[in-house]
Design a protein around this nucleic acid. Structure first.
Lengths: 257, 257
DNA sequence: CGAACCCTTGATACGCTTCAACAAGAGTGG
DNA sequence: CCACTCTTGTTGAAGCGTATCAAGGGTTCG
């Protein structure tokens, strides 16, 4: 029980991540195929296929970087003047005070924007970012992206849409924190997870429970108790890192609270 | 004590707002001067002066609407397909369940965007909006704005910046709610208010205290106690709706918590 | 004057955190 | 191979922060 499927590399990654410093400063260049970069841009900028020339230009402007688990990819101290994209891997966003491990506020899985707001505002990001697994990043100079946006209005439109999406979810999260208790937030989180893959009512937790807890703004103890409570009333069944939704209806009732 | 400076019209406004319905459906057209509309666009789209032709086109595309206090200007039920801007007046954003008054989550004072995200996403807004005072709104069809953005890359750039700003503050708010207690949030709110006008350590509350409380995600009772506590330790002095910051240093310490 | 509204204050209740202790795995080194 | 350590999740008891409920005073308005 309670074994992770990919125990080996993940454990190493976590240990490195917990150190909170750049554990392995070595850098391998260009391990990611150009095709991966294309796929990432296409994945980010909306479902509709991008014009081929735009995709090609974006890929050409991208500088690829491979990082190992535990490495910092975003810091509240630095000024961000480029757009950063996570192509592959997992990154945790949160507050990092060096002796302590990262307090994860939000976690990303590529392809995803790392920090869509700071780059445009000439300010430092509000959170630190640490790679939770080995990851591939790309970055584009803001100036280059802007001139490309000016020439290709399609890119501008899609960028605006991305920003709008992020703004929408951010406001939703604020709303939840203001009005919902821990129980409702967890129920919502579980429902969101199993909505992603429609038929499968089985959720495999890919992160440590304490990271999930900190994303929900509760302590690990509270999360544990809530999971037990949901199990007790038959909403879900928990076995280690695998959660099965037994009664979505009841779960929705909990989320409504 | 505890008198509002503009008691008369404001009180009427509040009463109407509390009704939660369109109290006064009459609509006066075009009371706002075209100059006001220009000023609003200029105010929204960044400090740097806009190109005159762009400003002129925006103003031409804008349809102006005047609403009275208490009227709904945004509904979670409706689909939003236009960009809405608050030119003058105050609007409360929050959850409105008709018999109950609006639970304000965030309040706006013109010039400000009403809802910058939903219009781009073809979805309904996450919150309701109610005019807290008589207000002037403008709206622009999303299509028209988009084609203008395509032709004038300057507009695209500035729109992206606006979105980035809103995203930044939204994430900051989430962060505060996750990590700071009520005391810290109130202290931060007070500091932000008096930073706006640098020299003046006196803050005049323009809203009901219960609305301030609900924006800080606390009950009016808690807000009252916190203000009393800050008064007791000499951080501030409260006299009705006017708050004077006596010891900004100490207030900052409270905000850090 | 009474009605409606606001803010305040006190007593109490509840949700969640904190602290402490424990069991189970995983890695390490004798 | 076993002892040892480190980490994770779990459980229980106690405490803090905030909400809730109830009551009272001040102001405005009809």
């Amino acid at each position: 029980m309670q074994t992770l499927t990919d125990s080996h590399s993940t454990t190493r990654a976590r240990k490195a991540a917990r150190l909170g410093v750049d554990a392995f400063p070595r850098e391998r260049v260009q391990l990611a195929a150009s095709r991966d970069v294309c796929a990432a841009w296409q994945g980010l900028l909306g479902p509709a296929p991008l014009p081929p020339d735009l995709l090609e230009t974006l890929t050409r402007l991208s500088s690829v970087r491979q990082v190992t688990a535990g490495q910092r990819v975003l810091s509240r101290d630095e000024f961000v003047s480029d757009l950063r994209v996570l192509v592959l891997g997992d990154v945790g966003l949160g507050v990092l005070i060096p002796p302590a491990p990262l307090r994860v506020e939000r976690s990303l899985r590529g392809p995803a924007w790392l920090d869509l707001s700071s780059a445009w505002l000439n300010c430092s990001p509000a959170v630190d970012g640490v790679a939770l697994s080995d990851a591939v990043l790309i970055s584009v100079a803001r100036g280059a992206y802007q001139t490309l946006m000016a020439r290709q209005s399609e890119l501008a439109r899609r960028t605006v849409t991305c920003l709008a999406e992020q703004l929408h979810t951010a406001m939703g999260k604020t709303h939840d924190l203001m009005h919902k208790d821990a129980q409702a937030r967890l129920a919502g989180w579980l429902l969101q997870r199993c909505d992603g893959s429609a038929a499968s009512l089985r959720i495999v937790l890919r992160e440590r429970k304490r990271d999930i807890a900190s994303q929900l703004a509760v302590t690990p103890e509270t999360l544990s108790r809530l999971l037990k409570q949901f199990s007790a009333d038959g909403s879900i069944a928990v076995r280690g890192y695998s959660v099965t939704v037994l009664d979505a209806q009841r779960l929705r009732a909990h989320a409504a609270s």
